[in-house]
Design a protein around this nucleic acid. Sequence first.
DNA 1: AAACTTTGGGATAGCGCTATCCTATCGGCA
DNA 2: TGCCGATAGGATAGCGCTATCCCAAAGTTT
Lengths: 357, 357
Amino acid sequence: MPNAVSSPPKTVKSHRATGRVTLSDVAQAAGVSPSTVSRALRGERAVDPALIERVQAVSSRLGYVPDPAARALASQRSNHVAILIPLLSNALFVDLLDAAQKTLRAAGFQTLMGVTHYDASEEEQLLREQLLHRPAGLLVTGLDHNPVTRKLMDSSQVPCVHLMDLPTSNSNSNSTNDAAPYCVGFRQTEAGAALTRHLLASGRQRIAFAAAQLDPRVMQRLYGWRSALQEAGVYEPTLEFLNPAPSSLALGGVMFEQIMQQRPAVDAIFFCNDDLAQGALMAALRLGISVPSQVAIAGFNDLTGSDQMLPALTTVRTPRARIGEAAAQMLLTLMRGEAPELPQLDLGFEIIQRQSS
Amino acid sequence: MPNAVSSPPKTVKSHRATGRVTLSDVAQAAGVSPSTVSRALRGERAVDPALIERVQAVSSRLGYVPDPAARALASQRSNHVAILIPLLSNALFVDLLDAAQKTLRAAGFQTLMGVTHYDASEEEQLLREQLLHRPAGLLVTGLDHNPVTRKLMDSSQVPCVHLMDLPTSNSNSNSTNDAAPYCVGFRQTEAGAALTRHLLASGRQRIAFAAAQLDPRVMQRLYGWRSALQEAGVYEPTLEFLNPAPSSLALGGVMFEQIMQQRPAVDAIFFCNDDLAQGALMAALRLGISVPSQVAIAGFNDLTGSDQMLPALTTVRTPRARIGEAAAQMLLTLMRGEAPELPQLDLGFEIIQRQSS
DNA sequence: AAACTTTGGGATAGCGCTATCCTATCGGCA
DNA sequence: TGCCGATAGGATAGCGCTATCCCAAAGTTT
């Protein structure tokens, strides 16, 4: 029977060895081909509405659930979205992650989180690993990445949205920037300037800027502070206190004490982050330095607890949850192959004046 | 040499259409079969050491990286580990996640996070979704799950480690508990009792217990508080203040104010969580209630900032990062098919006495 | 009416691996 | 010598799906 080989028996098994209900099971039960089931279930191409309904009915009757691995292998695309954030120890990024994750999950995507620790090469490494999984989309923090990372993102063809930051509008639009990146955030520089102007408006003149964890966004706030002071003609370079160490309440206390010792005439301090500012407020209480009468204190981000401080902390409320959600939405749009309304989404910020200024 | 028909031409392509370097490419370049490459690279079965070395050399020369999707499909097992935590808004769980994630990544596993919001049915739903991905392992918070969830975990055959909690040793070991679950944590009840005893030892008699977000672990701390007070003969049921709302600094302030109003004779308050306690300390400052002379305040977990409060907060330091790491390690052991040294790992806790008591 | 496009469905070849079965070789032992 | 188990490698059938090609039928155009 040599020629019998050409017609394989194709035994009809109701279930595979693995016990999983497969697409073919559904196809067979519905009396259509696997292709049709696949198309009906994914809404691909044109399928007769009645057929779609039948397939869906059979599918849910059998309890069919598509296998993500098989799908990823066949389509070269997973249902994962990778999100790269610098730290998990900063509530800012956790809020971002939480919001993005929630939005993506609702749309059927799995979120794979990567923590870069503000390390460009770690970011590159994480990106490499993630790209192996052929993610359907990419969410990355900030616009500053090393060239290799940028090249990886570009050449991977994976839709990508940047978080928290917007390209500087006054950028020297040189030809190196191939395309404007998709991003959702707000203008850090403007926020820094706005808070500084607020302090100026309340009569402060000698306003220090205290920062830790000098990431690009912190530096932009610094530039905003500078320009606002320059506008007002009271810029004083020696009032910049920059510390590369990670941000923390304790460090805020230490920096506050140092500043007050070195520059007792300072009448306001703009901390680049609420945790530093909260630490400063506690230190002020300990040291008996009265806030705001002797020195005003302001923070950034409006983290939890800032409204509970004594005095309550003046700060900039940043829409991080909304950023996470909007970025996820934009990514979903891109992953559908559509173009978002705006490639750059500015969600703004809000000055929250409380008792510390 | 059978009929020529039965031997398909098998065109030799150096690279597939996708451009990816595959295992077969490596096999061909190394002059061995795909099976051998697969085995050599995974350390499966016995392979000649010289061959392993050659395969590895070729593999890295070609820049081969295994495709996780193909691997998952063929082996019915992904390199994902799912971790279920209640919230991302509690630093406790974020620390857990961070540590676990770091450990798992170092071992080549991807962490898939799921946020249950303390909702049993959401947990069940998340678990369902995660199991579709055939995770290699499972990390879940707590030991309390609804029956369906527990059944899903059992029947999935996926190795699972529970976080933060240990089975009560005094449990009525009835036959319903098929097997002792793997878990890494500490004795919440004992920690609650220990902190209470610490307050008693410092001369307090009327010690209130204030809690929010009444999850099982919070309730265990309550039981610990109760038993310590009963031991001392000063248990007073009306000093339990339980609020199901989510925990926050603001709520801590509100609860503190209420307690001091309703029960002015209270001389210590044990808050189930540091954020509540921190809020209470701030409220005390606002209200001019002196801590600890009028009332001692203690928290739980030793979250960031607790040492910066005024007065610094007495609390229980819980080894959450170590729990995350140890749990991940235990899971890695289980995933290798080995048995962990101990199925239950008690990492203990530490009373941190500061100025608030 | 003939030559087309469109529409809705089926057949099937992979996607890149692992698991299973098979084969060849080599000692050890009766 | 011959048998047997152990060892180390090869061959190959899937895993469950999607993408691609193909085809019949119906609608459009000249």
